[in-house]
Each structure stands twice: as structure tokens, then as C-alpha cells.
């Protein structure tokens, strides 16, 4: 399998926001290592800074402390080099564009607007044949998410950043898209970071699940997921899958308790 993604090294990153005279520390001492072509899932309680971490890696925001290195480049250099693809919880499609032209937007922005083959391939990959000319308002929520995923992939990025892209979907559609995401990732080997609220989703798709503490967010547990690929839905019914979900879940609950300890014993 061709591994063409970029490795990501995040060391000691902190980010504090000024908020109406107050200061909110979203991230503190955040470490993360993603090997080239790896698939990492970030999981944690609401407001723990998962999205902030992703935005920092995407170069959409800059850390107050710590370093982020990708194959010798900073996030901003990666962004300027147009080597990143992003998809957020809100599909953020342009309502006046069709499925095809929304996907093509990314190509236009990187100056390769004539790569129609790449667009056609992705329309097929995410299963939207027959809807090429539809506008976002004519699509279901799941279909819009697929357009956003296709847009994030069409430039063949070295790094794919997904911020709860399936958050607003029903369980069935969500599972379907997870299968597709896994298929695409296997075919392309793009380094991928997925932020999610769902433990089963994280365990199902990722090589490694990072559990974050409540604000200020940092990584408190790492779970390497050893299931062979391709993973299928039968895996969801197995005891080892449930055991892994339980283990991550336990880490998550421990992480929520840790805040109290941090106050008394700042180690």
C-alpha cells in the first residue's frame, strides 16, 4: 500500500483564548504523534479542545506554546502548500454550487480546476452518482456530508482533518460513511486525524485512539487498536470490539475525574 501522507508531531502545545476579559485555556501540554499514513481518532468530553487541536494542526489558528511539525513543515506552511484537506461537522458547502462544482471548489483553490477526472472519481467513491447537478438544499444531511468529504479528498491532500464530520447524522448513515471513509483511507493512505464524540466510531476506524481530559485539554490515554483491516460490520458484534470500547470508555471516565486531582496535585 502506498503510504504518501505526512507524519504529524505535536509537542507541548497550549492555546489560551481571551474571552470578555477572562482567559480560557483550551489546550495545555497537548502531545500527539501521527505516523505517515496513520489514522488517529481524538476523543474527549465536550469543550475539551478537540476542535481547537484540529484547527491548530490545520493552520487555521496558531498555538501560544509548543510546536507542531509535519515532515519538517509548520501547519501554516502545509496550509500555504495546499497539502491539507478539511471536513467539519457543518458540511459548509456553497449553497449556490452543485455537488460537482462544490467538490471542484477545492481544485479551483489549488489551481487545478481542469482535473475533472478527480471530481468524477470522488463522486463515485462517495456514492453520489446521479446527483452531480443537485444543489446542497436538494440533498439529505448524509449526502451533504459526503460532498464535504469528497471535497476534502479531491486535492489528494497529505493530511486529512475531520472534525466530527458525521456528528449530525443518524446511526445507520453514520456507519455507512465510516465504512466508506475506511475504504477511501485504505486506498489512499492519507494521514488522517478524526475528532469524534462516538467511542465505537473511533475504535472502528482508527489505528490509535487518543483520549483527552476536560479543559484545559491534553492527552491522558492512548489506545492502540490492533484490529486487522479491512474492518467490517461483523467486527462491531465481537467481544474484542466491545472490550476495546469499554477500555476507551473507562479512560474517558477516568479523564473526567482527573480534573479534581489536577487541582490538588499539579503534577
Amino acid at each position: 500500500m502506498a503510504r504518501r501522507g505526512a507524519p504529524v508531531d505535536v509537542v507541548g502545545v497550549g492555546r489560551t483564548f481571551a474571552l470578555a476579559g477572562d482567559e480560557v485555556t483550551a489546550l495545555s501540554g497537548f502531545d500527539m504523534h501521527v505516523p505517515a499514513g496513520g489514522f488517529i481518532a481524538l476523543i474527549g468530553p465536550s469543550g475539551c479542545g478537540k476542535s481547537t487541536a484540529l484547527r491548530l494542526v490545520a493552520g487555521l489558528d496558531t498555538p501560544d506554546e509548543g510546536t507542531i511539525d509535519m515532515d519538517g513543515s509548520s501547519p501554516d506552511e502545509m496550509r500555504r502548500g495546499q497539502r491539507i484537506g478539511v471536513a467539519f461537522q457543518d458540511p459548509s458547502l456553497l449553497p449556490w454550487r452543485t455537488v460537482t462544482t462544490n467538490i471542484r471548489l477545492a481544485l479551483e483553490l489549488v489551481g487545478r480546476r481542469h482535473d475533472t477526472k478527480a471530481v468524477d472519481e470522488l463522486v463515485e467513491l462517495v456514492g453520489l452518482q446521479g446527483f452531480e447537478k443537485a444543489r446542497p438544499s436538494q440533498l439529505s444531511g448524509g449526502m451533504r456530508q459526503r460532498v464535504a468529504i469528497a471535497r476534502s479528498l479531491v486535492t489528494k491532500p497529505d493530511l486529512l482533518l475531520l472534525d466530527e464530520p458525521f456528528g449530525a447524522l443518524d446511526a445507520l448513515t453514520r456507519q455507512q460513511l465510516n465504512d466508506e471513509l475506511q475504504r477511501i483511507w485504505t486506498a489512499r493512505g492519507t494521514t488522517t486525524i478524526l475528532v469524534t464524540h462516538s467511542i465505537p466510531e473511533a475504535v472502528y476506524v482508527a489505528d490509535e485512539v487518543l483520549v483527552m481530559s476536560p479543559r484545559p485539554g491534553s492527552v491522558v490515554a492512548r489506545h492502540t487498536i490492533g484490529f486487522e483491516r479491512p474492518r467490517t460490520r461483523e467486527l462491531l458484534l465481537t467481544d474484542r470490539f466491545h472490550a476495546e470500547v469499554e477500555a476507551v470508555s473507562a479512560s474517558l471516565h477516568r479523564s473526567e475525574g482527573q480534573v479534581v486531582q489536577l487541582d490538588t496535585d499539579p503534577s
Partner: peptide, 9 residues
């Protein structure tokens, strides 16, 4: 939408 545009510089 602005974030998507920014992410491609």
C-alpha cells in the same frame, strides 16, 4: 465556509 477557503490558503 471561510475555514474551508482558509485551509486551502
Amino acid at each position: 465556509i471561510l475555514d474551508v477557503l482558509r485551509s486551502y490558503d
